[in-house]
Simulated assay, not measured.
Amino acid sequence: MSEPDGPVPPPPGRATPGSALPKRFYTRVEVIETPEGSFRVELDGRPVRTPGRALLALPSAALAERVVAEWAAQGERIDPVTMPVTRLVNSAIDGVAPRHAEVAAEIVRYAGSDLLCYRADAPERLVVLQREIWDPLLDWARAEIGATFFLSEGIRFVEQPPRTLEVIAAALPDEPLRLAALNLMTVLSGSALIALAVWKGRLTAEEGWRAAHIDEEVQEQLWGVDVEAAGRRDSRFHDFAAAAFSLATLR
């Protein structure tokens, strides 16, 4: 017997100028455990589907409950920006699953020019923070997964050992949702190492986010806070934290 058709979530992203967010069309949101042991989200008894029309089925009850909470929190209109876990799951099912090798290769490319490998020579506060926060992560990567990185001062490109990139590739997960979360954290932070450290529990989401933004931290100490830039950074952190939460539920 085929699955009943279900509502399709709005596509990820913000509404374009002049367009309206879709109206909320449901009252009840709940998690249903399937006979196979996965968990799907239903709106008024109908299963949610991704924008690609796949069933939105999750391997973790905790993750499904977070998706339920995002749908339940919507007001008169549905704003996908306020639904980071839902967007991540949609991306994993529709985008990452059929493009696994390509997504994994993107993470490896980031590792090849990882943020942690490019050091400032000034101001002194930034130099110290990079040493205090980034060096232990490089030590962790060497001890935990056998990846050794070369450092550069400034923006001069430094090529990483092929063996290091092979080790990073081998450390990546096969499961699409895990890979989607790692890819998102890598892109948002500019560092595959930060993403891996959060996944493995070496860093919390907050610690990982700070490690990725110590340059901005020092700039704000010196020159004050750019309110608009800080707001954009906070918005991106919600996506980063959602990816970290998703990985934590799948350990």
Rank of each mutant, 00 (worst) to 15 (best):
P59Y: 11
T148D: 14
E144Q: 12
A242K: 00
G13F: 04
R119Y: 09
E228Y: 13
M1R: 12
V103E: 05
L88M: 09
A69I: 00
A205N: 08
R53K: 14
R109I: 01
A111I: 02
L126G: 05
V68G: 02
A212P: 00
M185G: 07
A111H: 00
A229Y: 05
V41I: 15
V187F: 01
G52C: 05
P17N: 06
S91W: 09
R66C: 02
T16L: 15
E65M: 06
A101T: 06
A20L: 14
Q74Y: 06
R40A: 08
D135Q: 13
L56R: 03
Q130G: 07
E124R: 15
P161E: 09
A244W: 06
R178G: 11
H213N: 15
V41N: 07
A122R: 15
H238I: 00
A205R: 05
A211W: 04
E3D: 12
C117S: 15
P173C: 02
G13I: 04
P80Y: 02
P10R: 01
E207R: 08
R142F: 03
D215R: 11
E217S: 04
P98F: 03
V81M: 11
A180G: 09
E42C: 14
R53C: 04
E70Q: 13
T34W: 03
A62Y: 00
L188M: 02
A197S: 11
E102Q: 14
G95K: 02
G75Y: 10
R119Q: 08
G45S: 12
S19D: 13
L193N: 03
V227H: 11
R156T: 09
D114W: 01
L55E: 12
R109V: 01
R202Q: 14
R202M: 13
Q221M: 13
P22T: 05
A57I: 05
V127I: 07
L222H: 01
S189E: 06
D94E: 06
L63H: 07
E206K: 11
V8I: 15
A72G: 00
S235A: 15
R77F: 07
H238V: 01
L56F: 12
V218T: 06
F150T: 11
G146S: 09
K200W: 08
R24H: 02
R49C: 09
G190V: 07
D114S: 01
L222R: 14
E228L: 15
F25P: 02
R40W: 15
G18L: 06
P12G: 08
E132F: 00
E144R: 15
G146V: 02
A62C: 00
W71E: 03
R125N: 02
L88N: 09
P51N: 11
S60N: 08
A73D: 09
T82G: 09
A192L: 08
L56T: 07
W223N: 13
A61V: 10
N90K: 01
